[in-house]
Simulated assay, not measured.
Amino acid sequence: MLTVSLMWAIAGLAALDSLNPATIAGVTLILLAPMRRPGVTALAYVMGAGVIVWTVGAGLLVGSAQVGEAVAGASTWVRRGALLLAAVILTISAVRRLSPRTRAAVVLPTWFGPWTAAPLGVLVTAADLPNAFPYLLAIERLSAAAVPTGAGLAVLAGYSLVYCLPCLLLLAAGSVWRDRITSRLQRVYLRFGGERVQPRSVRASVGLLVLATVVTVLAFAL
């Protein structure tokens, strides 16, 4: 059942998920690049990201509902699988934080343009979805609440919009005040998409492990 509290929870997860470094860096890099129609290109990139977020989520939601109807108790294991996958992702992230690593810079390929922006947005976002813990948790919550398929798909459409909102705001600001905020855009790119050495952090690793443990417990408690 779709409740107000569930919708607020999904909205919060979407807001957390919207701070996606790859998507934000992609939009920033497009606005900084010396190309024709950067605004149109960036919009196509964001639309590609939004479409794949909704499409994958819809597939997981509808698939879990159909499996649950076909096999008694299967939907419970689908929900547990989503949470356990999220726990595994958190554990891998925790292990990675125990050693320093260099994050490669996000760069535009030579063939990039208005017609290829949407497919690249799809590819970049799809590659990052398995690491999207809030996204998996949101789908699990919709499935656990037995939300009707139509309402669930509508909620996922709203999730996709919230996911793209920071990029759309950045696109609007960059298109209107591009000359004025070029230096700020450059800082945004360096923060989210530039090459960066991530230092070792035991505190962050412990925090991620604790969160992974909580998610694992929830997987079998629900």
Rank of each mutant, 00 (worst) to 15 (best):
G63Q: 14
G63M: 15
S64Y: 09
Q66N: 13
G68T: 08
G68W: 09
E69Y: 05
A70R: 13
V71S: 02
A72W: 08
A72L: 12
A72K: 08
A72P: 01
G73Y: 04
G73L: 08
A74G: 02
S75F: 00
W77M: 06
V78N: 00
V78E: 00
R79Q: 12
R80Y: 01
R80I: 05
R80N: 09
A82E: 10
L83T: 00
L84W: 05
L84K: 06
A86S: 14
V88M: 13
V88Q: 07
I89P: 00
I89E: 02
I89G: 01
T91M: 11
I92C: 01
A94I: 04
R96V: 04
R97P: 00
R97F: 04
L98R: 14
S99P: 00
S99I: 10
P100D: 07
P100W: 04
P100G: 06
R101C: 00
T102Y: 11
T102C: 06
R103D: 09
A105S: 12
V106K: 14
V106W: 12
V106H: 12
V107R: 15
P109C: 12
P109E: 08
P109N: 11
T110D: 13
F112L: 10
W115R: 13
T116N: 05
T116V: 06
A117F: 09
A117P: 08
A117V: 11
A118V: 01
P119L: 09
P119Y: 10
P119M: 11
L120S: 07
L120V: 14
G121P: 05
V122H: 07
V122G: 05
L123Y: 04
V124E: 01
T125R: 09
T125H: 05
A126R: 11
A126V: 14
A127K: 11
A127V: 13
A127Q: 08
A127W: 05
D128G: 07
D128K: 04
D128S: 13
L129H: 03
L129A: 06
P130F: 03
P130W: 05
N131F: 15
F133Y: 11
F133C: 08
Y135P: 04
L136M: 14
L137C: 06
A138N: 01
A138M: 09
A138K: 01
E140F: 01
L142F: 07
S143Y: 03
S143D: 12
A146P: 00
A146N: 13
A146L: 11
A146K: 05
V147E: 02
P148N: 13
T149V: 15
A151T: 11
A151L: 15
A151I: 11
A151D: 12
G152T: 14
G152I: 12
L156T: 07
L156K: 08
A157Q: 09
Y159G: 02
Y159N: 02
S160V: 02
S160Q: 04
L161V: 15
V162G: 03
V162Q: 01
Y163F: 15
Y163P: 03
L165Q: 09
L165R: 09
C167P: 01
L169Q: 06
L169I: 14
L169S: 10
L169A: 14
L170V: 13
L171G: 06
A172V: 11
A173Y: 09
G174S: 08
G174P: 03
S175C: 11
S175F: 03
S175Y: 10
D179I: 07
I181L: 10
I181K: 05
I181T: 07
I181W: 01
T182S: 13
T182I: 06
S183Q: 13
